[in-house]
Design a protein around this nucleic acid. Structure first.
Lengths: 109, 109
DNA sequence: CTGTTTTATCGTATATTTACGATATACAAT
DNA sequence: ATTGTATATCGTAAATATACGATAAAACAG
């Protein structure tokens, strides 16, 4: 049991769910805010702004990288993370299109 | 270990992550689409449109109910599910506001 | 009351996520 | 070469999510 059935859904549904999954932890929401609103971008700076260990923050950064929302530029021994504008914009549009589609409802109750 | 640190984040970040979590499975994306685009709303009808068992679909409906995105009106032995327009609209706005805020970036790399 | 239909919940197995310490790696400076 | 700094990865423990069969509960039909 608990064999994943995700592959039995449509590509679009899987993608939307995957983007949502990347945003489904407050640490990852906060990381995106930090990258957007402050000048902080080094992994270490982000760690200092979160109530989590360096290893755990690194894992959250990896999840954001997995879906492409952020990318990391190596700068000597450090890594400068930033939002991938292009991919972020693409996902933002897809998500908003989904949400707007849901809003034109024919509610039966 | 694996003691949750979620309570150490800000209320807004927790809420956004929680909405995203509710949308983080293709079955739940599809359920919302079904409720919006078709006349189906009974639990049984939804089950017939998904590649999952009745018990599993019921669990996914419960998760969507948990955050308030849908509600279920009891109709005899059946339950008619529908999107809670008010809460959906509220969350939609919060999410879009978050996404737009991220878009005005001061990228350092 | 009995049987049928519909949905929720329980119990359970497995998979995935979250979290961290320890360690490895990669580079810069001395 | 050695030392220090920054980050990723490994190993592991605990928590949560996913999935389903079986069963319970609720409401109606006959």
């Amino acid at each position: 049991m608990a064999v994943s059935k995700i592959s039995e859904f449509e590509e679009k549904e899987i993608e939307l769910a995957d983007i949502a999954k990347a945003l489904s932890h407050p640490a990852r929401i906060k990381i995106l805010k930090i990258l957007a609103e402050s000048n902080a971008c080094m992994c270490g700076e982000i760690v200092d702004l979160l109530p989590l260990s360096q290893a755990t923050v690194s894992q959250h950064l990896k999840e954001l990288k997995r879906v492409g929302l952020i990318k990391g530029d190596i700068d000597g021994p450090k890594v400068c993370y930033c939002i991938d504008k292009k991919i972020f914009e693409k996902y933002k549009k897809e998500f908003e299109s989904f949400l707007s589609g849901i809003n034109e409802l024919n509610n039966c109750c």
